[in-house]
Computed example of a mutant assay.
Amino acid sequence: MDDSLEMLGLADADGGPVAPDCQVFADDGRIPNSPLATLLFRSRGVVAALDREAIAARFERLFRANGWRPSWRGGVYDYHHYHSIAHEAFGVLSGWGRLRLGGERGEDFTLETGDALVLPAGTGHCHLEASEDFLLLAAYPRDQRELDLIRADPEAHDAAVARIAQVSRPPHDPLGGDSARWWA
């Protein structure tokens, strides 16, 4: 049995994934956001023996096993943007970062090593500040092979809303929970 959830501090008492903090952000006319909740899975603490590469390997294994394709490592752009044709997940490999989610009038969230974040298609996100070692692993549902990047722009809004409505819902979140539980 894979112990990645436990090692990343993301297991609940029964060994399943911890319940996420769920946030829904309003459409502001520039960034559509989504009627689906943004999911923030807070780590209870990564096992100290894991270095950044071991954390990355655990997240990659979890994401792949649950139908999410690991794609790149890096940070988040420092301008408000969203993706209209794919949901996006992050696993925090090291450090901490503060992001604003939901657009310019959204909310600020601090992510730390071991946390996982799922942004439904259309959800605005922007880097505000981070530790020098802040590094994310990004992943996308297996059937969502392309990614667009749209800045906060009222002229792009309506066409993006139509594309967002067509994005499929994966059966599982990247940690293995039933997506319908969070995205009813």
Rank of each mutant, 00 (worst) to 15 (best):
D2P: 07
D3E: 14
D3N: 13
D3R: 07
S4V: 05
L5R: 06
E6A: 14
L8G: 00
L8Q: 01
G9A: 06
G9K: 12
L10H: 04
D12Y: 07
A13N: 05
A13G: 04
G15H: 05
V18S: 04
A19C: 03
P20C: 08
D21M: 13
C22M: 15
C22H: 06
Q23L: 10
Q23D: 13
F25H: 14
D28L: 08
R30C: 02
I31H: 06
I31G: 00
I31M: 12
N33G: 05
L36I: 00
L40A: 02
L40P: 01
R42S: 04
R42A: 02
R42N: 02
S43K: 12
G45P: 04
G45T: 05
V46T: 06
A48P: 03
A48Y: 05
A49K: 13
D51R: 10
D51L: 08
D51K: 10
E53L: 13
I55R: 14
A57N: 04
A57F: 04
R58D: 12
F59H: 04
R61Q: 14
R61Y: 01
F63K: 07
R64E: 15
R64H: 03
R64L: 12
A65G: 15
A65D: 14
N66V: 05
W68R: 10
R69S: 10
R73I: 05
R73V: 08
V76M: 11
Y77M: 14
D78S: 14
D78T: 01
H83G: 11
H83Q: 08
I85H: 03
I85K: 09
A86M: 04
A86I: 00
H87L: 08
H87V: 03
E88L: 02
A89T: 08
F90G: 11
G91D: 12
V92G: 00
W96H: 08
W96F: 03
L99M: 03
L99C: 02
G103R: 07
R105N: 14
R105G: 15
E107V: 01
F109V: 01
F109N: 01
T110K: 10
T110P: 03
T113C: 11
D115Q: 11
V118N: 12
L119Y: 09
P120R: 15
G124N: 07
L128W: 10
E129M: 00
E129C: 01
E129P: 00
A130H: 09
L136M: 09
A138M: 02
A139M: 01
Y140F: 12
P141A: 06
P141N: 12
R142T: 02
R142G: 00
D143K: 06
D143L: 10
D143R: 11
R145K: 11
L147F: 00
L149G: 13
L149I: 06
L149T: 15
L149C: 13
R151S: 13
D153I: 03
E155N: 11
A156Q: 14
A159R: 11
A159V: 05
A160W: 04
V161T: 14
A162V: 09
R163K: 10
R163E: 15
I164V: 11
Q166H: 04
V167T: 08
P170S: 09
D173N: 15
P174C: 09
P174H: 13
P174N: 15
L175E: 07
G177R: 14
G177Q: 12
A180L: 13
R181N: 08
R181E: 13
W182T: 00
W183Q: 08
